[in-house]
Design a protein around this nucleic acid. Structure first.
Length: 863
RNA sequence: GCCGGUGUGGUGGAAUGGCAGACGCGACGGACUCAAAAUCCGUUGUCCGCAAGGGCGUGAGAGUUCAAAUCUCUCCACCGGCACCA
């Protein structure tokens, strides 16, 4: 054993050792209890960053811990390999996206291996490989068969100068990221997945997500955005047509004084004569700052009151939600109220706050014109109905039901449910993605590629100009195809799929090995669902919702038994760091500032806020640099210790050194005692410590601390993965071990026991050093083949306790008492304490509260 | 605007009704050294006090309780999500 902790040497040695022993391979084995531990796979952008390090360090601790607990653990890794950056690299540097991607993957896989992560690489998934994406295409065909995939016209961002489609993130401030031209909306036929088919189920089953952070579940619920209401038809005066609206407030139907329709509504085109004016409203569509409306020149009839009300086209009415038309109740909706004031429209109060209903009775039921008695603002709460015919006097909640019923009985409309969730547009006018398996035949129309012809392979020999749309449009070999139905002339769909499709089922792919059928039911039944999923909060909605959607489809296809993909979810916080800013040179790298001055110009450096690590802010730490300087174990340990997993982690160079120091201390203790520890090993069995007569007093204390630490570390990991406090407990134990001096011969077994258990508990966090020191104390097999230590409750128990004595809630004394003292005895001893006596001094004792093993609180009268 | 989260020493954080500040960082003092680094030992919330001891203290204010960082209410600050959703 070397004196110095040489992490370079031992980390490489141990990584090789694990690989040779096949420690990370996983087999389906129904006789064993399984644990599926998954971290969100990365986009192969080129290098691992600190966010990845944290994510994968957390996952690796869990995987290794569960393995030591005797579970059959699946811990796989792969690559979310399709996406825009690869295509950008192709345009910019002339390197093919496939080459760029695969080179990045090879580099990043090595980086992950250097971290000592226990991945089952024999199950690695790479989404840009045809063997993977053929199943995306299979999904597409299955969805199409079930009517859950369809085509419709939709808008995309279009740069007229580059003649290309842009993703939202490529349109900063409404301009093209490459040429700064103003981006316009262009209408294209695109494919959609009907996720709304599952809207209700996705919402209902949110309640099954007990292992998810509440806020993520809440975000999903909000995103689905269910609201119940009524659709009502308003006849248009003088025309044999009706305008259908949706409202969640049927209780305000008697207060409707005008109507608004979206400027893109078909009715708007027909009703408005002056198309120029309508175009102005259309231009303002979606502008939140301004409310603009245009009287259509037509009136509708409120079917409940038979009143005539004007119809407006208004920029704030959304075409995509509800029916694209609304009834306006200015008295009870602030937006309508503002609009009514702007356009001089009447305001009719039909709801009053519940308590004043009595007072309001008998008051004028006349319509209130805002010019004579203007309510200061809309009353949006629920209340009691007035001015509402036979419904007056009802409470809002009752009226909603009653009016809903009435509307249905009279055939005026129906009760409905609306969701904010929209169908998922999956078409991307991009090259580097999964080809959509569709053929357009001149004779047969839209024809799906037959399943036997999958995969539709993405052609490699294409040109990347960045102009004129997808390179697939230029590939004749790809584009021209015979119709599978009539063998006539046809062309392929050139759009590719959104990369979220790739990540919506990759966790299912891992369940089977590379050469096995990905839809193998035996494997999937055994491994699914994922027991612990770990990743960033930024995927709280889309990725997680799409994955839930896909697992439901798989369930309906009979592949999966259970519809929820992820049983437990841990969303780890961001990795942040202080930023530095020079008034002249902007963001600075840490090395560009010395003594709080900019090294470029000498000006004082502004200490910026602590922000998420990003290249642009120059506050990044390169994991490679850290590994070279301190080793993977130190990097892992610090990123787990500095904050609980779900909170943000502020990077601290000094903190990293603290973690490094800790590992060096552990090394040093074992180095110092290594000869003796090997001998001590043979002299005892681990559980021989029940007989305390064998050990000296200070050995006993060390043993107790060891058992307490096993309990604490195990509890902390089990209880929501409080890895930071688990590490703190290990540090405490190491502090005790380090100050323990074996005096008698019989002290050595105790020291050995403490060290052995420390190493086992350290193993999931800092696997290389733990494995190496495991060998150094004479153990033969891998530490990861050894079960997680168990504690002995009797030995962990203190025999004496310090009781806190309070008088009137204030700490006044501490007394040492034997454990298990009765409440009465504890009370008596507290009262007997000299200090306490002095304070009480004749005051009357009103009450004594005894909390077993913790404290005694004596409550006295005032005097 | 609506919803959610966070707020504790010089600092990252611990304690989720019962000793506020575990553990780490930093700082200070000491040992080792010709010296420094590394390492080791000790001290470290704050105020008053020579000390013994005492007062104060978890964003602010109120409340519940024998007892509140923790529960309830009001407010403030910061962060995140959604946002014309009828």
């Amino acid at each position: 054993m070397k004196e110095k902790y040489d992490f370079h040497e031992i980390e490489l040695k141990r990584q090789k050792y694990w690989a040779e022993r096949g420690l990370n391979r996983t087999e389906t084995d129904t006789s064993q209890e399984k644990f599926y531990c998954l971290e969100m796979f990365p986009y192969p952008s080129g290098k691992i960053h600190m966010g990845h390090v944290r994510n994968y360090a957390i996952g690796d601790v869990i995987a290794r811990y569960k393995k030591m607990r005797g579970l059959n653990v699946l811990h796989p890794m792969g690559w979310d390999a399709f996406g825009l950056p690869a295509e950008n690299a192709a345009i910019k540097h002339g390197v093919h996206p496939a080459q760029w991607t695969h080179e990045n993957i090879d580099f990043m896989r090595k980086q992950l291996d250097r971290m000592g992560l226990s991945y089952a690489w024999d199950r690695e998934v790479t989404t840009c490989n045809p063997e993977y994406y053929r199943w995306n295409q299979w999904f597409f065909l299955k969805l199409l068969e079930r009517g859950l995939a369809y085509r419709k016209s939709s808008f995309v961002n279009w740069c007229p100068s580059c003649a290309t489609v842009l993703a939202n993130e490529q349109v900063p401030d409404g301009k093209c990221w490459r040429c700064d031209s103003v981006v316009i909306q262009k209408e294209l036929e695109q494919w959609f997945f009907k996720i709304t088919h599952y809207a209700e189920e996705l919402l209902q089953d949110c309640d099954k997500l007990a292992g998810w952070p509440e806020r993520v579940v809440l975000m999903q619920k909000h995103w689905i955005g269910k609201s119940e209401g009524v659709e009502v038809d308003f006849p248009i005066e003088g025309l044999d047509e009706k305008l259908r609206i949706f409202t969640t407030r049927p209780d305000t139907l008697f207060g409707v004084t005008f109507m608004c329709i979206a400027p893109g509504h078909t009715m708007a085109e027909r009703l408005v004569e002056d198309k120029g004016k309508l175009d102005i409203i259309k231009e303002k569509y979606g502008k939140v700052e301004e409310k603009a409306g245009l009287f259509t020149g037509h009136y509708a009839i409120n079917p409940l009151t038979n009143r005539k009300i004007p119809i407006y086209a208004a920029n704030f009415v959304l075409m995509e939600y509800g029916t694209g038309a609304i009834m306006s109740v200015p008295a009870h909706d602030q937006r309508d109220f503002d609009f009514a004031k702007e356009y001089n429209l009447p305001i009719k109060v039909v709801i009053v706050p519940e308590k004043s209903a009595e007072e309001q009775k008998g008051e004028s039921t006349e319509e209130k014109d805002f010019r004579t008695s203007e309510p200061p603002r809309a009353f949006e709460d629920e209340g009691t109905l007035i001015n509402s015919g036979r419904f007056s006097g009802l409470r809002s909640s009752e009226a909603k039901q009653e009016i809903g019923k009435y509307v249905e009985e009279k055939g005026l409309g129906k009760r409905t449910v609306n969701y904010k969730l929209r169908d998922w547009g999956i078409s991307r006018q991009r090259y580097w993605g999964t080809p959509i398996p569709i053929i357009y035949c001149e004779r047969c129309g839209v024809v799906p590629v037959p399943e036997k012809d999958l995969p539709v392979i993405l052609p490699v020999d294409v040109k990347f100009t960045g102009k004129g749309g997808s390179p697939l449009l230029e590939s004749d070999a790809f584009l021209n195809v015979k119709c599978p139905k009539c063998s006539g002339k046809a062309r392929r769909e050139t759009d590719t799929m959104d990369t979220f499709v790739d990540s919506s089922w990759y966790f299912v792919r891992y369940c089977s090995k590379k050469d096995e059928n990905p839809m193998d039911k035996g494997n999937i039944d055994y491994w699914m669902p994922v027991d612990q999923y770990i990743g960033g909060i930024e995927h709280a909605v889309l990725h997680l919702l799409y994955s839930r959607f896909f697992t439901r489809v798989l369930k309906d296809l009979g592949v999966l038994e259970y519809g929820e993909p992820f049983k437990n979810l841990l969303t780890q916080g961001m990795v942040t760091k202080e930023t530095l800013k020079c008034p002249e040179h902007g963001w600075l790298f840490p090395e560009e500032a010395r003594n709080e001055k900019c090294t470029l110009c000498g000006r004082p450096v502004e200490l910026g806020r602590v922000e998420k690590m990003s290249k642009s802010k120059r506050n990044v730490i390169d994991p490679d640099v850290l590994i070279n300087k301190y080793g993977a174990d130190t990097m892992r340990l610090f990123s787990l210790f500095a904050a609980p997993p779900e909170r943000d982690l502020e990077w601290s160079d000094k903190g990293v050194e603290g973690a490094y120091r800790f590992l060096n201390r552990v090394w040093g203790i074992i180095y110092k005692n290594s000869d003796k520890l090997r001998v001590a090993r043979s002299e005892l069995k681990d559980d021989n410590f029940g007989d305390s007569s064998l050990v000296t007093r200070h050995s006993l204390l060390l043993l107790r601390k060891t058992h307490q630490t096993i309990r604490k570390v195990t509890d902390d990991i089990e209880k929501d993965y409080h890895l930071n406090t688990a590490i703190a407990a290990l540090m405490e134990l190491v502090n005790d071990i380090s100050s323990f001096n074996p005096e008698a011969e019989e002290d050595w077994p105790a020291l050995h026991f403490a060290i052995k258990n420390t190493l086992m508990m350290l193993a999931p966090f800092a696997p290389h050093i733990a494995e190496e020191l495991w060998g150094a104390i004479g153990e033969k097999d891998s530490i990861f083949e050894h079960p997680w230590p168990a504690w002995n409750e009797t030995l962990a128990k203190e025999e004496e306790l310090e009781l806190v004595v309070q008088v009137n809630g204030k700490l006044r004394a501490r007394i040492v008492v034997p454990a298990g003292l009765s409440d009465g005895e504890a009370q008596q001893r507290s009262l007997d304490d000299a200090k306490v006596k002095e304070i009480i001094n004749g005051k009357q004792i009103r009450k004594v509260v005894v909390v077993k093993g913790r404290l005694v609180n004596i409550v006295t009268s005032n005097q």
